[in-house]
Design a protein around this nucleic acid. Structure first.
Lengths: 350, 350
DNA sequence: CTGAAAGCGCTTACAG
DNA sequence: CTGAAAGCGCTTACAG
């Protein structure tokens, strides 16, 4: 036997069942439908006399009535939940840019009384369709990468969808950052400082929209500047880069890192190898998420409007829901902005 | 008019309604209940001949039947959703230690086919109770701080609950880290290196379980070592600390930072002020979350078993659900572990 | 302007 | 072993 405890105690003095809409209706002497209509402020409520409305509200309040969400969901054919679909593991999805994206989604959703449900995609693609067909979510937001099986399921179930940071030829609403221009801005900045030997540190990355865009801008910028001969996209890691750097005879003077994770690793590797940033090497990256500003030295970076990306994605799916899928499935591309900090400087005199 | 698009096209060739359980039952020539029982593998299914079970499964599959989650929720009186209740803004809750905690929660939940729903607590405490009374979630996990109004709502609604990193005298299951011992380990480490002038950098923090425990361990350790005269808990920020440090005549040789955020800021402030860590000052902190290991220099820190904390919390609420609240509302305290990196070293010779 | 009724699509005792 | 029925608690056309 457990010791007496608060919850037991309270359940003893307040053991009454939750009141249902029927209880409220009876107490008010009106029909269930009237209670429903009044409490939900449906359009039909306009035709209920203010006096009745007030009474219903008051009695419902007095009884501590709250509509059962479970029942409402069945009757109203909506759950008010938007699934955020992602490929596990989760940590990566809550970090860096995704932190802002999730915040933005959540903010917009909350304002409309929708909720965000995290839905990790299991290993078996055949189950993905079921996530959508069981009518649990009213809409879906897909982060980062749209796998073909998922795309098929999304489209064939007619789920209101928005893609974030995932490109596709499919006609689905999507939110992207103008990564090309962001990278172009970085290059411009480096050129202005006088850099010519600029390399792109990619690391090990699966192909992705962001990869393409950033690399394309890097290449195009170098070419336009007549530096085609110096174009170099490296797939090694930061540690490797730093140790190669020391031995190299033709050192780059600046490096554009594909992610801030890479840049931060590079800062550490540089420190370990006695290289000074930005004196020996300028470093730029993408994403202004924590801790880009807080490392040593603070990183020059391309900020994506992550919170706005999240908001836009949420708006795009809510729009689909509101219009029952009739809304234009438009795409949104948000501006990026270079933020100059202390990891970039003019190259040391040769 | 929008251009023809994939979803329109598909809805034209596959416009059939979702099959319901009744459709399946008819197609199989059995009762709805049989279908339900077989597909859910309820205990009652044992009494259905294997032959029938196979047929039901096959036909359901062929029809692409999937039970409506909306309907199931009403009938089964469970939603399979666990709310993670937190005080906005969200970013803080997805970062640092919470990243691991959320992962752990999600992992355990997913294994049991439960889902995590993020539930930001609005400004109006009176609405919190409604979050719980509308029967949307089967249980709640509260992060970091249990506000009194929420506690009251949780208890009076009998919601299966677990608290993470939030202390309270109330009889609710809770998961804590042994922060006292963690801090004690740090102190031991610093003493071993030869430090005596050790300060605790708290920064601006509202009172909290973690604050109490860490400071208590700091004080106790200093006293036990006969260093009571050097006890100092600072509430300034990292920048202030660094600039005060330079001017101080009796400089500390080591600082224990309340959070890794503070420690990282301090590393930067030290760099800006030309102080070397660990040469001029040893730094330790709490939390082994990103980017503690990746900064310069990598930080000595007390790692909390965050993923395990999340798992335990999820288990505690699932346990309450499984036993209909009869489970012991026990608390779990998880071990912490000091991880020594390069931000600590013996103090410079005086 | 209001109420009776159908319906949302399941699950679960219960009867046979 | 299987099915008919009640019930979960709402919302929403629809009739009056």
């Amino acid at each position: 036997m457990a010791a007496p405890e608060a919850s037991t105690f309270l359940s003893m003095i307040a053991p009454m069942k939750r009141p249902t809409i029927l209880d409220v209706a009876r107490a008010c002497g009106v029909a269930k439908s009237t209670v429903s209509v009044v409490l939900n402020q449906s359009p039909a409520a306009d035709r209920v006399p203010e006096e009745t409305r007030a009474r219903v509200r008051q009695i419902a309040d007095g009884l501590g009535y709250r509509a059962s969400w479970r029942a409402r969901v069945l009757a109203a054919k909506q759950t008010g939940m938007i699934g955020v679909l992602y490929t596990p593991p989760m940590p990566l999805i809550a970090r860096g840019n995704y932190e802002g994206i999730l915040s933005g989604i959540n903010e917009t959703l909350a304002a409309r009384d929708f909720h965000l449900v995290l839905m990790p995609l299991g290993d078996n693609p055949d189950e993905w369709r079921q996530l959508l067909t069981d009518q649990r979510i009213d809409g879906a937001i897909v982060l980062s990468r749209l796998l073909p099986k998922l795309a098929e399921a999304l489209i064939s179930t007619g789920t209101p969808t928005a893609l974030v940071n995932a490109d596709t030829d499919l006609h689905l609403p999507k939110v992207l950052a103008d990564e090309y221009d962001g990278c172009r801005q970085s290059m411009e900045h480096l050129f202005d400082l006088g850099h010519e030997r600029i390399v792109f540190l990619l690391g090990q990355q699966p192909p992705h929209y962001s990869v393409q865009q950033r690399i394309a801008a890097y290449r195009d910028s170098m070419e336009a500047k007549g530096l085609k001969r110096h174009i170099k996209v490296l797939e090694c890691d930061a540690t490797q880069f730093a140790s190669d750097f020391k031995q190299s005879s033709s050192r780059p003077t600046a490096v554009v890192c594909y992610t801030h994770y890479l840049a931060i690793k590079l800062l550490q590797a540089a420190w370990e190898n006695g290289l000074r940033v930005p004196n020996d090497l300028s470093v730029t990256c993408f994403s202004n998420a924590y801790p880009v500003e807080d490392v040593v030295p603070p990183l020059t970076t391309v900020a994506l409007a992550t919170v706005q990306m999240g908001r836009s994605a949420a708006e795009l799916v809510l729009e689909q829901i509101d219009t029952k899928g009739a809304a234009l499935k438009r795409g949104v591309t948000l501006k990026t902005q270079l933020i100059v900090r202390k990891s970039t400087a003019a190259p040391a005199a040769m």
